[in-house]
Every structure is written in structure tokens, then in C-alpha cells.
Amino acid sequence: MIKTWELDANFRNEIMNEPGGEHLSACFQCSTCTIGCPIAEIVPSYNPRKIIQMSLLGMREDVLSNPDLWICAICQTCTARCPQDVRISDLLAAIRRIAEKEEEAGKLKVDSVRPLFEKAFLHQLEKYGRLFDMGLAMEYYKGKEGGSFIKGQLAMMKDFKDFGMRMFKKGKMGPKAMFPEKVKKKEEIEKIFEKVGEKEK
């Protein structure tokens, strides 16, 4: 049972103020997003339109602590098809950002490795201007194992024992991947990160 007076009516505004969340209120619950979603097909509990309905209602805690929030593969099918231009994948990113902030503030424990991964991903970009696979892996596993580099390396080795070798053999991860490669105008990239950083504040 949902008691509306216990909910956070401002939650919708919070989302709509977040980049990507602006179109939340346009949703008229037509189910297009859910029907076409490849993730929903695998994970039945995952249902974008339910997340939207809950967000609109102001079910802040339920939404932010919902593990399904983190499994969107950003394939953009929903966004492309949405008749009301809700841009669901952006919207979910916006909600996730709120969750991350909550976690930073110690109010919420995010039950997903996704923030770690995304952070590591961005970090690599910021550093080299392009992706450095090995660096990403090392940073991610370190974070995953609570900041311990050694534990991270061990975990990584374990995961990669078979998988990594297979990729290596197939040439998907050559010796080049072991070393970072920088782009030419790295400073331009840095500027982007600066600008976004300002906006975030």
C-alpha cells in the first residue's frame, strides 16, 4: 500500500532539475519503453514505466534504492520510440545521479557496481582523452575491493583467467591495451570535464 502523504512530492522536480530528467512529466504511461526494452525481456522486474510512475508519485526511497535502476544498458531503444520524448535512458541516468549523491552524502547504499565502473570510465577519459582498457579495469577492481590495489588485482586476475585469455587470443586485447594512449588535444577534453564539473555544482 502506498500512502501518498508520506511520499516526497518534490521528487519529480528534483529529477526534472537534473540534466536528462527534464521530460519526466511528459510520460503518459503508454508502455512503449517497457515493451521494446531488451533488458526488461531478461529481467522481468525491470520496468522503466513503473520507475517513471513511482518517480511521478514521489516514491523517492523506493526509486533510489531500486536495484533495477542500475541495469539499463542505454541502448536508447526506449528513447528513440517514446512518443512523448521522455528520453528514458537520460532520465534514468538523472535518477541514478541523484542516488549517487545520496550515497556520497551517506544517506543511501547503492547496491550496484555501476557507479564505480562509470567513475573509473570517466576518470580514464579525463586522464587520457580516450579509453585505456587496462587502466579502467585496474581502477574498477581496486574500487570494487574496497580500495585495496592488491585485492583488486587478485580479483581481476580471477575474473580474467579464462575470459581475458580468450580475448587476448582473439586479438581483442592486444599488448597495446596494456599501455595508455593519449589523444592530441587533451586540453580540450579537460575543458569539457571542467565545464561539466561546474554545472554539477
Partner: peptide, 12 residues
């Protein structure tokens, strides 16, 4: 009973 959330919603 909201059909989308399949849950009862109460409003005052």
C-alpha cells in the same frame, strides 16, 4: 488500485 504499480494507493 493503480494498475501500473499493481498496488493500492491512498490519498488524503
Amino acid at each position: 488500485h493503480d494498475v501500473i504499480l499493481n498496488d493500492e494507493i491512498q490519498i488524503k
